[in-house]
Design a protein around this nucleic acid. Sequence first.
DNA 1: CACAACAGGTAACGCGCGTCAACACCGGAT
DNA 2: ATCCGGTGTTGACGCGCGTTACCTGTTGTG
Lengths: 319, 319
Amino acid sequence: MITTSEDVAKHAGVSRATVSQILNGRGQRFAEATRDRVNQAARELGYEPSSAGRTLARGSSDFVIALIPHTTFGPTLQDFFSRMTDELATHGLTLVLRLSTPSAASLGRVIASMKPAAVFSLTRFTDEERALIGSRGVLGLDPDSTGDTDYNHAIGLLQGRTLIAHGHRRLAFAHLADARQDPFGADRELGLRDACLEAGLPEPESIGLDVTPDDAARALDELSGTGIAVACYNDDVATALLSAATRRGWRVPEDLALIGMDHTTLGRLTLPPLTTLDFDLETAAEAAIERILTTTGHADATQHPQRHAALRVVPGGSI
Amino acid sequence: MITTSEDVAKHAGVSRATVSQILNGRGQRFAEATRDRVNQAARELGYEPSSAGRTLARGSSDFVIALIPHTTFGPTLQDFFSRMTDELATHGLTLVLRLSTPSAASLGRVIASMKPAAVFSLTRFTDEERALIGSRGVLGLDPDSTGDTDYNHAIGLLQGRTLIAHGHRRLAFAHLADARQDPFGADRELGLRDACLEAGLPEPESIGLDVTPDDAARALDELSGTGIAVACYNDDVATALLSAATRRGWRVPEDLALIGMDHTTLGRLTLPPLTTLDFDLETAAEAAIERILTTTGHADATQHPQRHAALRVVPGGSI
DNA sequence: CACAACAGGTAACGCGCGTCAACACCGGAT
DNA sequence: ATCCGGTGTTGACGCGCGTTACCTGTTGTG
């Protein structure tokens, strides 16, 4: 039925201990012939070590839990996690996704029962989450702990600098009104604020909206008139504002400039097409992966020069 | 550090065997006082059984793997899985998400090592996946195996009936060109076809497009002229076609009628707003959950009348 | 009073694995 | 003949848990 290391051992004519060591990289000590026999046997039998047994013996599992932010999980993020899945798999780690919405208590149960090698999140852990993770002695990786670039701050900063470079002097940041949908908003707004600061401009205004015609219209009223350039939480927000502006006869970008984030396909369909930011997932994923591997001791800390996630401005007609 | 059942036993002044039985529902045999002491101790110590130990002892784990289709994972699906997570948790099952993109071999490894109680998918398993799941003796649940309504067929059917009820006689189905992004397309088109059949109309045309201005324009050329009503794979596709039609001066819905699917927020921003379908996740999730629970023997088959997932037409101005 | 019946509880095993001290073997040095 | 240092290999333990046969009183029954 299910093949165990015992089966492999018998099939290769060695002991289970031998199998275990050879299959776990501690095989230098064995004769090459033995190694080959064992590897061959494992392959023939389609042996796959039981995660449970291994976890029990080692005290922690090969699972890495990734928390999915409560935000649209588009192709971008999918590719990101897809890449992480594959990459971690080659190092014997299994990536497993969990929605971050359910209560932290639920996360606690999962961590306690699953004993993951690490918990990874693209967004900052809440205090509750952090406490939970720490109390179980599990490795937690979030933007704060990675020492990586704070992507979200960088996003706001680049949005700001881009708008300013285009001559805009009055800036605003547009959040999603629903805080759960807006996990990155605060950090991005800080980035925008810093862009204003370094250019000697006043602090940006701040608005929040739902992605509906009515609420976008209401949000426009919150702005101090026309001639403002808005850095949007994402392309959806930008699209909503664009649509509302068009409806009330404001010209974009003359009366209202908009810069989005995410480079969504739908953002290319508007008139004018959105100017937005694109995020180089390749780089970001690699950084995250390396970070996980080295911290869990699954790979050496290859001294790669610190790579910054590449943010790219995608030109459109909205600024 | 980590509390084991041994700790609980000591704390309650009983043996580990007693703890195990009481905490697993086989506690009728014990004195009420003992039960209380054990439960109390478990609570005080924040005991959470080790998934690994339990898996090893029982032969299969408490994990349920849900395969995430390679499609936009929007709020709709998120809520769906969020609900499943919570609901299954109350029955001691842990929902774990996996992207379905990585190779089937990868899925095989995960199944073999993780020994999940079930593998759940909203889309049909590929033959490869099905074989893999079967060979490991794991319970696989996909639309085929559930005997539930085939949601996707129902979607195409309702799109078709709605268009026909509005007087449209020439129908088409618009796929996403990228097959990986179009996992439900084939079934939905079949539903549309059946709608045509029952109304005595000719078979619908079929087009495919990427969600870009250029490709949407190209797709319009594939249609046999104006006056066609298109059932779209989702609101994004509908939006792309709407945008392309507007650009070339076609009036919607007079020259081109469009019905989407998903009731996305962005679909409400177009001019005219999209007519689309909304999917009652509540019902669907409950059905899926119940199915998992009964099949894995975690709950009795409450004889609920077969509930059909409610599909609702969301009126707009595009048909 | 002997014996069955039963409620309440436990010791002991095995699940599959990683780990290491210990062992067998062998050629060479003493 | 004895010792020694490798080189390969394995036996045995424990990880945390579920399960079951078994044990110990206590209460009924004839």
